[in-house]
Amino acid sequence: MSRIANAFTSGKAFIAFVTGGDPSLARSEEYILELIRGGADLIEIGIPFSDPIAEGPVIQEANLRALAAGTTTDGIFGLVASLRKKTDVPIVLLTYLNPVFKYGYERFFAACEAAGADGIIIPDLPFEESAEVRPTAAAHGVDLISLVAPTSKARIAEIAAQSTGFLYIVSSMGVTGVRSEITSDISGIVAAAKAATATPVAVGFGIHSAEQAKEIARAADGVIVGSAIVRIIAENGEDAAEKLYEFARGIKSGII
């Protein structure tokens, strides 16, 4: 069984996102290990990009902080490789297509494989364009994580059928960021996806509290929390470890 599949075998999965290199690669490693200690079942690491068009202000600023700190794509691979010596928790990278394209698809996915990254999420690579990446990712054992949105409708079945690793359900219209309420028909979207695939489905965008996570986990196999974690890092800088551990424990306890 792949590491990603493992994350979904013991109850609902808590998927935690951090922007790699915010505030530094060393802190990212420490913070990721704290999130895992607090209960995170899968880690998403953002490779920073100058113009992340699917992100709200919190993650946009984290991208800029990470770039200002000198974070490179190779730096992120180094972070993954270092984490791999310490944990078997699955690691999925998240970035925009341009840094991957510029690195070179073959070289990029070979580096993922060598470092021990299990999957990749590319928000600006929709299903129709994914063929230029998918075979190369697959050849290196890297799952290309597909996304579906509240607007996907008839596309859900088509996208779900091709999904590998897990299927990322975007909870709401708009960009990433904390939302007080999620109004989309999550259970309807999850049901449509599950009718088309056995791949686990996880829901992200806007989730920031244990209560919300519990609600979402009723329908989904996993919950993804990004901006709320990145905000803790933004507010606490070099001293976020304890707060991240507590936060992760809170989310995980909500979905067990």
């Binding site: 699917a54 929709p126 129709e128 364009e129 996907s152 975007v170 219209m173």
Partner: peptide, 12 residues
Amino acid sequence: GGQYIPETLMNE
């Protein structure tokens, strides 16, 4: 060319 945009916009 192409259509490199988030899934949320694809139907639109």
